[in-house]
Design a protein around this nucleic acid. Structure first.
Length: 127
DNA sequence: CGCTTGACCGGAA
DNA sequence: ATTCCGGCCAAGC
């Protein structure tokens, strides 16, 4: 399994933490989403960044300072990535009012998005 | 020094 | 729905 780290790990991690801090209480972001919001490091092929960025975000959160609401970042399936401590994360999110259905949360309801983000075509397309 | 082990994701079969 | 694949590094034992 290929596994890389950003060229300037410290700088990259701080960008991740800064974004994570902006996720509001009761909302969630995904690893891939945060990766997309950070520009690809200069020396990295955009193709490689697209493939690996989400893992870098995960690594950054694994080493985040206490003031980062790490629990609000989950995987693209709307699930908490399997690992020790996963139950704690679920508990924290439930305390924020997020409801889990069969270990999964409804991203349509809880997904955080900024005004910049024009994704989610299923949202707002009526009839 | 040489393994082992990682908070991921989208596309294809 | 499910499994498989590519991405090709570095910290910690």
């Amino acid at each position: 399994m290929p596994y890389t780290y950003p060229p300037d790990q410290k700088t990259y991690y701080e960008q991740v933490w800064e974004l994570a801090r902006q996720v509001p209480h009761g909302k969630v972001a995904t690893y891939g989403q945060l990766a997309q919001m950070i520009p690809a490091p200069k020396d990295i092929d955009p193709k490689d960044y697209a493939a690996l960025g989400s893992r870098w975000v995960g690594n950054a959160l694994a080493a985040c300072p206490v003031d980062v609401p790490w629990q609000r970042v989950i995987n693209s399936q709307g699930q908490i990535s399997k690992r020790p401590g996963a139950e704690k994360q679920r508990h924290l999110l439930e305390q924020e009012g997020i409801v889990f259905i069969r270990d999964r949360i409804d991203l349509q309801t809880y997904h955080w998005h900024t005004s910049e983000q024009m994704d989610d075509p299923t949202q707002g397309q009526l009839f």
